[in-house]
Amino acid sequence: MILYTAMPQELVYQTDPQEYSQQLMVSYNGIPVLAERTEDHNYRVVRVMSTDPSHFLEAGCTPGTKLPLV
């Protein structure tokens, strides 16, 4: 399909509303992190939202780690 339009791409292909619910804010041992849901119903850390630099050294919540659901 070839499109020839002045409409911006994101208007032509609008985001599936389901995509929005993939990410949520989680508190990991008091550290606010942004996590996304993976296929196996786990959560993977996307971003550490804290301003404390020491929280970025915390191995348990570096971006990419899976958060186990207890």
Binding site: E10, L24, V26, N29
Partner: peptide, 24 residues
């Protein structure tokens, strides 16, 4: 840049338990 978005509700945050012993 020129970007557009849609609105969606805020997700509630939940407390993540200690991860040490409960390793799946």
């Amino acid at each position: 840049g020129n970007q557009r978005g849609q609105h969606y509700g805020e997700n509630p945050s939940f407390q993540q338990g200690n991860n040490a012993p409960g390793n799946p």
